[in-house]
Amino acid sequence: MKIAVCAKQIPDPALEITYNGGNINRPDEQVLDDTDRYGIEVALQLKEKFDAEVTVISMGSLGTEKGIQQALQMGPDGALVLEDDSLSGSNSLMTANVLSELSKKVEADITIFGTESTDGYSGVIPQQVSRMLGVPCISYIKAVDIDESVTLTRQTSTGSEKVVMPSNCVLSVTAGGVEPRYPNFKDIMAAKSKPIERISIADINYDAQQNLEFVDIKDVSTTKQGEKIIDEGEGFQIIIDKLKELKAI
């Protein structure tokens, strides 16, 4: 079994995001999107059971490759990454085109994603890739049960349902379904010697186009001049009075 698993590098979420035109400014040092840790964990559990080969795939400006290292530290065998200046400001379809080609390059049977990235959160790339690859998409997975076969529990709008993992498919994994492992010192050192193959757009079959034109970004953050009261024992009464005033009771 061969598995491709996504790792997106994003600006450290603790820092403020700034934009240049319509694009997020990406510092040289980017970190692994936490959302991808869940997909990587699923890939590693499959690797342990089925002796699968796990390759991290990623697109975007590579910089110091810190995020890629963080992904490899968890346990994948290597990485295939694509950096190309022409891809900056990619729409989801362009990204999906690249990721589906990377999945093909590693001949993946299973390609694993997060459900949505922290910075982009278009939340459609896994489904797009499955359509491009012509394989089923098992989206919004919230639990994984690995036996001789693999049973995936999907989150649905009304509850959940189960699906047996097909031998060839795309998965998207929600946060919280599995517990991502933490690398120890040995894992961190071992990651440094794992192979990272770097390719460019000329090495893949790329035919997506930009159909979205950036118009502008407006700051619409609201900070209200609300009241802030430090509770000195009567706080409950202040809330009750307010609820009465609002006719909520």
Binding site: N91, S92, A96, Y121, V124, Q127, Q128, S139, S157, L212
Partner: peptide
């Protein structure tokens, strides 16, 4: 609507028509 079903369907169609969707 941006629901689970909506997201899957719009994603599939955006590939068929080679036209990126906009989310949110």
């Amino acid at each position: 609507p941006s629901t689970y079903v909506g997201r899957d369907l719009i994603a599939f169609l955006s590939v068929d028509f080679k036209s990126s969707q906009i989310s949110n």
